[in-house]
């Protein structure tokens, strides 16, 4: 990809002189050759890494997704659409795709509801309070994903802190099953993705002028009306940008659903892991990879449609 674009480069700014004599042409050609070599020299190491580490592995997976699973040989060379047909018709797989989408929607709504007010608070705060709040919101990003997930296990587990508190207070007689279910995963993913949502919202809310809100107030609008008629429409772009980040992250997440779901929550990602490790079904696993990529792409396209005018 890079080399193709390197060969046919030429820009008006770089081209020296005009249609001069043969000597000028030679010098220009030499200069252009030198420029070409310089670009190849500078960009070929990184291009090589991307080809070996990204393009070829993805192409190999794509090829693998057309092979056929064989319990004895792991896979049989083929060029069939069987895996895709199976994934798109089998109720088991369709349900997992549906659950993955539902997880993405739930986490997005969660971060939107939790994050919108605090984002507003940050955008409207004075500068020192603002940097303090921003630092607090961003700080979980520095903590290892496994460590944060462990924190939620410690809070929500059967021996966890919430259960301990409720037992001590006599509210419950035996521990409640707070962990290993869909909503535990939503809370865990919400914790991981909330900073993305808040940052997207803050960047839009900051551009909202105080005069606009005062105008609404002076015209006698209630707080609720100001929100629905002024604030919400004007922050819509931030809602969209944050939602797509959170949604795509959530449907592709692996660590949080695997640990907090405790094997009871299956998403496309956890299924991909399962197909490549325990059940060694590479062809179906590879096809699942491209289903996941397609899901991401569809969401990005829908986002592009919905928010085309705002940008």
């Amino acid at each position: 990809m890079a080399d193709a674009s390197l060969v046919q480069n030429d820009t008006e700014a770089d081209r020296p002189g005009g249609p001069g004599g043969a000597r000028d042409g030679e010098i220009a050609a030499a200069a252009q050759r030198r420029r070409l070599w310089r670009r190849v020299f500078q960009l070929s190491p990184i291009t090589l890494l991307y080809v070996v580490g990204l393009i070829l592995p993805y192409l190999y997976l794509l090829r693998m997704s057309f092979n056929i699973y064989d319990p004895m040989l792991v896979f049989r060379e083929a060029f069939a659409l069987d895996n895709y047909i199976k994934l798109l018709t089998d109720a088991f797989y369709l349900q997992i795709v549906a659950e993955t989408i539902w997880l993405g929607v739930a986490v997005t709504l969660f971060t939107l509801i939790v994050g919108y007010p605090i984002a507003w608070q940050i955008a409207r705060a004075k500068s020192h309070v603002k940097s303090l709040l921003l630092a607090a919101v961003l700080s979980p990003l520095l903590i290892n994903l496994v460590v944060r997930t462990y924190g939620w296990l410690a809070i929500l587990g059967d021996n966890g802190i919430l259960n301990g508190w409720m037992l001590d207070l006599g509210l419950i007689g035996s521990p409640l099953p707070l962990s290993n279910n869909f909503w535990t995963v939503v809370v865990g993913l919400g914790h991981v993705t909330l900073p993305f949502m808040v940052l997207s919202l803050v960047s839009v809310m900051e551009s909202l002028s105080d005069e606009l809100l005062e105008a609404g107030e002076n015209l006698g609008a209630s707080t609720f009306q100001i929100f629905t008629d002024v604030v919400w429409p004007l922050t819509w772009a931030g809602v969209g940008a944050g939602s797509i980040l959170v949604f795509c992250f959530s449907i592709s997440a692996f660590v949080t659903p695997a640990l907090l779901g405790g094997g009871h929550v299956s998403t496309v990602s956890t299924l991909i892991y399962e197909k490549f490790t325990f059940s060694v079904n590479w062809p179906v696993g590879s096809a699942l990879v491209f289903i996941l990529l397609a899901m991401n792409m569809v969401v990005i396209m829908i986002h592009g449609r919905l928010f085309r005018h705002e940008d």
Binding site: Y60, L61, S252, F254, I272, F276, W282, V289, N296
Partner: peptide
Amino acid sequence: SPLILPTVVTGVALFQF
């Protein structure tokens, strides 16, 4: 693009390759 591609997919792809 490595920022946008799901890391689970990049991981699997490298693992297979």
